[in-house]
Design a protein around this nucleic acid. Structure first.
Lengths: 338, 338
DNA sequence: CTGAAAGCGCTTACAG
DNA sequence: CTGAAAGCGCTTACAG
C-alpha cells in the first residue's frame, strides 16, 4: 500500500498547518469556509483516514461503548441489542459486543479490554456471580456502567428491565382465570434476580387465588428451546398432572409446546402454556403463544439513551427503572378441560 | 477517580525507567526475572490499565478484528459468529461486530470506523450490491478481508461458505426419491450469489430427474420464519398443488410448517418440507426438520483461522473454500401420498 | 483566520 | 540487564 496519508500529508500538500486541517475536518467555524472546503476535498482525494487512536489518546474520548450480555444469539438479548444499536448509531458511537455466557472471567476480560481501548461506557447484563469489584473497576476508571435485564445488589448503577414479579403474575392470573389450578413453572434458575422475581410473581399469584404452592411443580432448567423441549418429559410425568405451565420465557414455552406435541397432546387445548418476553417469534409459533410483553426494545433504547446522557454530562438519578409488562393473549392457552 | 496510573507511574514508584516497565509487563526475557515480578506486582497494586490506544499508535497493530454480517440475530450468522468468537478469543483478539442489514451505506460506515480504529482485519458477509471499492478500501489500507457465506465477483478475497448448488440438490433429490414431482422452492432472492446458486441446484436436480421446471413454483421472499409463515398461503393456493417444498433455509421451513399447520395440514405427512443450514433448532422443531447441514461452525472457524494466519504473515492461497453440505433426514419429509 | 509547539502513553532502536 | 530519547498521529491552548 502507498504511504499513509495523515493530517500532515494534507497540510504539506496544501501549504497549511496540521492545526488548521484538524479543525477544518471537524467543521470548526474557526476555519474560513473556503479553506475548509478545499481541505475536505483534498482529504477525499488523498484517501485520508482519520486515526481515532491518536485522537482518542489526546482527548481521552474513544466513542466506543461496550455491551456485554449472556448470549447475543438469544433473541431476547438480540431485541435489546437491536434497540441499543439503533440508538448508538444515531450518535455515531461504535459498539463492541460480547457474550459472557455467565462466565465471570469472560466478562471481566471483556471489561478489561474495553478499559484498555478507552471505552466511554458499558451496558451490561451482569453474569451470575459478578463481584461488585468488577463493576467498580469500570466506574473507578471513568467508564460508567448501565445494567439491562438483570439487577445486582449493593451498587449504585442505573438499571433498566421489566417488572418480572408483576409480569409473571399476569401470566399466572390469566391461567387461573381460565380455571387452571395445577400450574407448573418451567425453566430458569434462582441464581439471578430475574429468576427469583419471576418465581415470586408466580407464588404471589397462586397464594392470592388461594391455591397451595407445590414446590414439586417447579421444574428449573436452561432458558432455551432445548431446555423447554427436554422439560416436556418431566412435565408430562408429574404425578400432580398439571393442566398448565407458566414458562420462564418464550423460548422455553416454544420448546415445551414442541415436546408436548411430540407426545401427542395439543398445546393450547390439552395443556395451556404461557411464555414470557413476546419475542417476534411468539406470534408465529403454532399454536401462537400467549405471553407477556417485556419491552426489550424499550429496555435497550432507554439504557442506551441513559448512558449517552450520562456521557454528555447529565446527572439523572441512578437506581432501578422498571418497564411495565403487558399480557398478550393468543392460542396457546385455553379453559381447563375436565 | 484518582490520578491515572501509567507506565511512568510504575517507573517512578519503583525507581526504574518506562522502557523496563514496558518490557517487563510484556514478559520480555530482557528483564531480570525478579525485576519483572516486582514490576508486575506493583502494576497490580496500583491498578494499572494498559493503554492499547497508545500502544497501537506506536506499533500500528490494534488486536481488533471486525465482523460484519447481514443480521447477528439470525441464528445462521449467530452460529458462524460463535465459532469466530471462540477462535479469536483463543488468540486474544477483540472483535467488533456489526449488522449491515444489506445496507451498503451501513456496511461502509462500519468499515470506515474499523479503519479509524486501526482494525487488523475484517471478516464480512458482504451486503447485497457491495461495490468492489468498499472491499479494496480495506485491502489498500492494510486491513485484509475474508468473506463468509457470500461471494463477490472480481475480487481476490478468500471466501468460506457452503457449496449451495450441491447442497440444495441433495434436498431436492431426497424429495424426488420420495416420489415427489411437483416441488416448490420457497424463500430467498436472486440478488446474492447464494440465492442464484441455490436456485440452480434445485433446477439441476429437477432436470436430471427429467422433471420439467415450472417457474411458477418458485416463491421468493424474506429468509425468515415470518417469510416462510407468510409464504404458506401462496404455497397452498398454487394451482399446481405441489406436494413438497424445498425451502431457502431452516427459518423459512419452520415458518412454512407453522403456516401449513395453521391451515390444518400436517407437515411431513400431507406436505414434505426441507430446510437448509441444520440450525440447532431444526432437530427440535415439530415435526423435526429434514435439512441440509451447512457447516456454519466450520465456516466461522476456518475463516477466523485464515485471517489470523494471514495476519501472522502466512501467504495461503486466496479463492473460494467450499464446505461440503450433508443431508440430515428427519420427520418433515415423507413419501408422496396419492 | 492560521501556525508553532507541547503532550496524550506507549514501544523501539540504540547506547551503555 | 537497564535507561534516555525519539516518535506514532492527533488536538489544544496560546500567540499572532
Amino acid at each position: 500500500m502507498a504511504q499513509k496519508v495523515k493530517l500532515s500529508t494534507i497540510a504539506e500538500t496544501l501549504g497549511l498547518s496540521t492545526a488548521t486541517i484538524s479543525l477544518a475536518l471537524r467543521d470548526s467555524p474557526l476555519v474560513a469556509a473556503d479553506t475548509r472546503e478545499k481541505i475536505k476535498e483534498q482529504a477525499r482525494v488523498l484517501g485520508y483516514i482519520y486515526n481515532r487512536r491518536a485522537a482518542s489518546l489526546r482527548t481521552s474520548r474513544s466513542g466506543i461503548i461496550g455491551v456485554v450480555v449472556h448470549d447475543i444469539m438469544n433473541p431476547f438479548y438480540g431485541e435489546i441489542l437491536k434497540a441499543i444499536e439503533t440508538e448508538l448509531d444515531r450518535s455515531r458511537h461504535t459498539f463492541i459486543l460480547s457474550n459472557h455466557y455467565d462466565s465471570v472471567d469472560k466478562q471481566r476480560m471483556f471489561v478489561e479490554t474495553l478499559l484498555q481501548l478507552g471505552g466511554d461506557g458499558v451496558i451490561m447484563s451482569p453474569a451470575i456471580g459478578t463481584p461488585p469489584e468488577d463493576v467498580l473497576l469500570c466506574e473507578n476508571n471513568g467508564m460508567p456502567a448501565i445494567f439491562v435485564a438483570r439487577s445486582m445488589e449493593g451498587l449504585d448503577v442505573p438499571i433498566y428491565r421489566g417488572d418480572d414479579t408483576y409480569g409473571i403474575s399476569l401470566a399466572t392470573n390469566h391461567l387461573i382465570g381460565l380455571g387452571h389450578r395445577s400450574i407448573a413453572m418451567i425453566g430458569g434458575t434462582d441464581q439471578t434476580s430475574t429468576g427469583r422475581d419471576r418465581y415470586q410473581g408466580y407464588v404471589n399469584a397462586l397464594r392470592k387465588a388461594g391455591i397451595e404452592v407445590d414446590p414439586g411443580l417447579r421444574i428449573p432448567g436452561p432458558r432455551t428451546k432445548q431446555g423447554g423441549f427436554e422439560a416436556a418429559v418431566n412435565f408430562l410425568s408429574l404425578p400432580q398432572k398439571p393442566t398448565a405451565a407458566v414458562c420462564w420465557n418464550d423460548l422455553v414455552a416454544i420448546g415445551l409446546m414442541n415436546g408436548i406435541a411430540r407426545a401427542g397432546l395439543v398445546p393450547g387445548q390439552d395443556i395451556s402454556v404461557t411464555g414470557y418476553d413476546d419475542l417476534e417469534e411468539a406470534s408465529i409459533a403454532t399454536p401462537s403463544l400467549t405471553t407477556v410483553w417485556n419491552g426489550q426494545a424499550e429496555v435497550g433504547r432507554l439504557a442506551a439513551r441513559a448512558l449517552l446522557d450520562k456521557l454528555a454530562g447529565s446527572h439523572e438519578p441512578d437506581g432501578i427503572h422498571l418497564i411495565k409488562p403487558e399480557m398478550r393473549i393468543r392460542q396457546s392457552t385455553g379453559p381447563i378441560r375436565r
